[in-house]
Each structure stands twice: as structure tokens, then as C-alpha cells.
Amino acid sequence: MAVGTELGSSLFLPKLAELLKVEPLSEKEKLFQLRLKDGSRLNHKPGQFVEVSVLGIGEAPISISSSPTRDDSFELVVRMVGNLTGALHRLQPGDTVGIRGPFGNGFPVSELLKRDLLFVAGGIGLCPLRSMIQHAIDKREQFGRIILLYGCRQPAEQLFRGELGEWRQRPDIEILESVDRCPVDVAWEGSVGVITTLFPQVSIDPGKTTALVVGPPVMYRFVVAECLKQGIAKERILLSLERRMKCGMGFCGHCQINNRYVCQDGPVFSYAELSRLGEAEL
């Protein structure tokens, strides 16, 4: 035990952050742009998360959806599902929240250099992936192809529609979109069906490709099977996992999968690693 050292500052102590912008993205999701009040940068890596506090209500782990390559602010997308996220949705620009982190490993950016990046986003899974997509766009020459497969339940649930429009205009990004179902009165140019229906529509070089997959748990088994079928190595299939990360430091126990703590060792894991963990059920 480190008996002689200084106590140091508490890792439970959030920094205060100001909401710069609050913007609805869909019926249930809002985008929050924040800046730390002490003037420091968050210094996060794509794929990491923060613990967001509404003081008096509580704290929740939220993935960072903007790239550190942009500016000194950062963005979070929050789906309203409970007390804390409900309280967040009631906040206005100028209001204050608490931020701890960033936590977790994030995407292994250095291992992705020169690789073709196959992003597979299911619903709100686009939010953590967006931090890496923006990073790859901002340092475009460092990466190979950028392919995005984006599946939602229906067209109205698509997030970042404006930004998706910009990405579609770029010749150096390939985007394929699907919805599980499309109401008859809604115009939709993408595919209809689950996200795996997009795989046959794209031709990849499996040896050069790393898949970055984020979506609901039910999606992973099917998407992993498709990636393997395409010939992508187990080590090159990266998944970001959602768990109940209360403390972010590997203390509280809630996010444990076998002997791994998602908050510290993850949230990004390779399928090679997850396939050895019985509790990952992949």
C-alpha cells in the first residue's frame, strides 16, 4: 500500500462543464456540446467515455461522440431512458454539469493507421463511432478506405442526418444505410432489413480491413458472424460494449465481464478477446 504518498485528488470529483449547445437529434436523443469550465481540454481518445453528473440526481457513463481533433469542446449524445438522462434532457445551454474522465481504452488508433476502416453502427451506436469517423476524416491520409454501414429501426431514428449528408457527398467515404422497416409514406433510398443485409453490398479486402462495431448487444453476434464470413481476422473485429459503469475505475464491480472491467480494460475489445470470455456470450 502506498502509505507514504500524498492522498491526491479524488477520482470521484467531477470537473464542472458548461453546456454550449443542446440540440435534439431525434425523438429520444439529444446532442450536448460541452466545455470544461477550468479551461482545460478533455484530452480524450476516440471511443472513450465520460461520467456525466447532474448534481443531485446522479451520474451516468456516456460515450464521447466527437473527435479530439476538432476543438476544445466535446460532444455527447444522450438517449432519454431514465432519471439522469431525463434530467440531462431538461438542461439548457449555459447550464452546468459534472464530468469525470475520460475513461476506458478507446479505439486503438495507432493500430488503425493505413487500415481500411469498416464502421458498423447500429442505432445509437453511431455516437461512439462518430468520434473515430471524425478522427479518420480529419487525418484522412493516414487511413485506407472509410466504409460506414449504418442501420436503424426506421428512418426517423437516424442520427446526425446533416453530417451524414456531408459524408455522403465525399468521394472518400462509402456509406450504406438500412432500416428494419420503413413507413410507406416516408422516402427512403437505403436498404430495408437488418444491418447484416448491407454486407453483401460492399466489397472489402479482408486482409486490409478492421471492423469497428457498435450497436445493441443483439446485433453483435450477427455482425461478428458476417465479418468472419468476409474473412476479417478475429483480432481485427473491434466491438465497444455497454455495461453499467458506475465508478469508471474498476472499483465498483458493476461492469465486470469475467476478469475484465469494461470501464478500464474496455469499452473497446477485439472479438478475439471477447470470444475467450464466457460472459461476453459471443
Binding site: G56, G58, K246, C247
Partner: peptide, 20 residues
């Protein structure tokens, strides 16, 4: 050692604490 983290707020609604 597993713990939950919660917020409590005073009746004055101006101050409170986070506890495990």
C-alpha cells in the same frame, strides 16, 4: 467491495452529497 453510487440532496435543494 462492490458499491452503488447515489446522490442525495438536502431539503433546501441547494446542497447535497454523492455517496456510495
Amino acid at each position: 467491495i462492490c458499491f452503488d453510487v447515489r446522490d442525495g440532496i438536502e431539503l433546501n435543494l441547494k446542497e447535497g452529497e454523492r455517496y456510495r
